[in-house]
């Protein structure tokens, strides 16, 4: 998969320093800690995890909206982490972002047309040449031309998210980073936006990095999925393998916590994780998930597991994942049948 990768993230780290009163008790929080992945052109790559797991910070670091402390992000031949000033500004047309809350991400004083045209203006384009492009991009997101002159408050949440998407699309980027693009929308509207994202990808061959906490949505839209916990990736897998055969106990717990709409069809019983993720300030010395792991073993608290790569490109950070003669299993949680016994 490396040869056709559009976005490559290597060993990304983002640190925040937090200061106590009078500058005392300084400590450093690693919000993103050694994250590596790559996304093929035209694919959708999802990142899931609980709040505080570093999903959004990873996205912002890729967008160069927060500073990466370490690591390298490249988009095609461009090394984004090396760009500065004017070069970075020019490069931005290649990677755009859609935010979670369309009520706060659109300037209330600008008409829809101007909201969408703003990125073009940043690229020193005069307004005259824009008209045709704007009409085209409005049509692509399913808005009518006469709606271009309305203000954001005159639109519903779903329509506002369409405007945000049009703004991201107007520079014809290769990568769009979507940070929880449907979680602020009403259930019935979410489907409209998800199907729109899919259609746009099919028509324009754009690549998505898709951040979400909703596993149903991620399953619907993503080709590859990374599961993050406390700033690190604990498992990365193609959609089909992740949902049929989660290898990391955290992935398993996360999937089993989602309530199922059709009673009796759930593949396994819910494992209720105890407590909440520990603080990023005092990370455990062993496996970061050990404290909450339903199948924790003594050695988990001693040494952190490496993110080992399996033959199909899938990666898992658990001491107990074994690959033998073409089959892979977690010796603690086993296959699906064993999981049923376990819970």
């Amino acid at each position: 998969m490396i040869d056709q990768a559009l976005l490559t993230v290597q060993d990304l780290e983002v640190e925040f320093a937090s200061k106590g009163a009078l500058g005392r008790n300084k400590h450093v929080v690693k919000a993103v800690n050694g994250v590596s992945f790559s996304i093929n052109k035209g694919d959708t790559f999802g990142i899931v995890g609980e709040s505080g797991s570093g999903k959004t910070t990873t996205a912002l670091a890729i967008m160069r909206l927060v500073k990466a402390t370490k690591g390298k992000v490249s988009l095609g031949d461009m090394v984004l982490t090396d760009l500065h000033g004017e070069a970075l500004r020019r490069a931005r047309r290649q990677f755009q972002m859609v935010f979670q809350d369309p009520f706060s991400s659109l300037n209330p004083r600008l008409r829809a047309r101007d909201v969408v045209a703003e990125p073009l203006a940043m690229l020193d384009r005069s307004n005259k040449d824009n008209a045709r492009e704007l009409e085209e991009v409005f049509a692509q997101v399913g808005l009518r031309p006469e709606q271009m002159d309305l203000f954001p408050h005159q639109f519903s949440g779903g329509q506002r998210q369409r405007i945000a998407l049009a703004r991201a699309l107007v520079t014809r980027p290769e990568l769009i980073v979507c940070d929880e693009p449907v979680s602020a929308l009403d259930v019935a509207i979410q489907a409209q936006i998800l199907n729109l994202l899919k259609r746009i990808q099919r028509d324009l061959d754009v690549t998505y990095l898709f951040i979400s906490h909703d596993l149903g949505v991620v399953q619907y839209i993503c080709d590859w999925i990374a599961v993050m916990y406390l700033g690190q990736i604990v498992e990365v897998a193609p959609r089909a393998s992740l949902f049929s055969y989660p290898l990391h106990p955290y992935t398993l717990s996360l999937l089993s916590a989602v309530p199922s709409a059709s009673p009796g069809t759930k593949a396994w019983k819910a494992i209720t994780l105890k407590g909440e993720p520990p603080s990023l300030i005092n990370l455990p010395t062993g496996c970061i998930f050990a404290d909450r792991c339903p199948v924790m073993q003594p050695e988990c608290q001693k040494s952190p597991p490496a993110l080992q790569e399996l033959s199909d490109g899938r990666r898992v950070a658990c001491h107990f994942v074994e690959e033998k003669e073409g089959t892979v299993q977690n010796t603690l949680t086993g296959g699906l049948e064993m999981i049923n016994v376990l819970t």
Partner: peptide
């Protein structure tokens, strides 16, 4: 509509 408009998480191998 409310049931069908949500991508419900499906687990297991026959998705």
């Amino acid at each position: 509509g409310l049931i069908d408009c949500v991508p419900h998480l499906q687990l297991g191998s026959n998705i």
